[in-house]
């Protein structure tokens, strides 16, 4: 176990934001996450990103959509995720990514952690938010990150490291929630 237990909700929220950005675009996340955690984008980052994450064009790519990693019906998964987001007051923007993209799910966790941060002291609220985080991680985000990690050996360094660190970060957060 790491120093994770000592991370504040706000810090975790920032991590989630960085992760979401890193999976959204080739050089994303760099304004939030240190280079010791995620390597700086190489000059070929744009191509490397597609090679890693755009299965419709790349031999070795892995989809970032949960529905590609699940035997569940995609529409049903969309519905479930939209219900999750809606439950916490969120509505999908018209031009948003699809709800099962890992960056959207990370963004949702970013929001829940931020909300946890604002709920300091309200034990009922903290309980609800942590149960939600745990359930969401267990049923959606963490299995997705594990599946993506399985493809990552051939990825360029930045994205290989990203997938590994992302999975570990989610695993550690899950453990904290389990122990909490």
């Amino acid at each position: 176990m790491s120093t994770e237990a000592s991370l504040t909700a706000l810090e975790r929220s920032v991590f989630y934001r960085g992760l979401a950005e890193a999976f959204r675009s080739p050089s994303g996340g760099t304004n939030v996450l240190d280079e010791s955690w995620i390597p700086a984008p190489s000059p070929n980052a744009k191509t490397e990103f597609l090679e890693a994450f755009e299965p419709s064009v790349s031999k070795t790519a892995c989809s970032l959509y949960e529905s590609a990693h699940s035997s569940r019906d995609q529409t049903a998964l969309f519905e479930e995720l939209i219900r999750w987001y809606d439950h916490f007051g969120l509505q999908r923007k018209a031009k948003a990514e699809l709800p099962d993209h890992i960056s959207v799910e990370l963004e949702f966790m970013h929001f829940l952690c931020y909300r946890e941060h604002l709920s300091e002291g309200d034990e009922a609220a903290l309980g609800a938010l942590r149960r939600a985080q745990k359930d969401f991680l267990n049923n959606h985000l963490h299995p997705l990150s594990i599946s993506i990690l399985g493809y990552s050996q051939s990825f360029a360094n930045r994205f290989k490291v990203l997938c590994g660190n992302c999975e570990q970060f989610l695993r550690e957060h899950t453990l904290v929630l389990d122990n909490g």
Partner: peptide, 18 residues
Amino acid sequence: TAWNFNTDAALFQGDTHN
């Protein structure tokens, strides 16, 4: 069975082994 397809591995690849 509701087969799932290796859409991620195949389309993708133009490689006949996928």
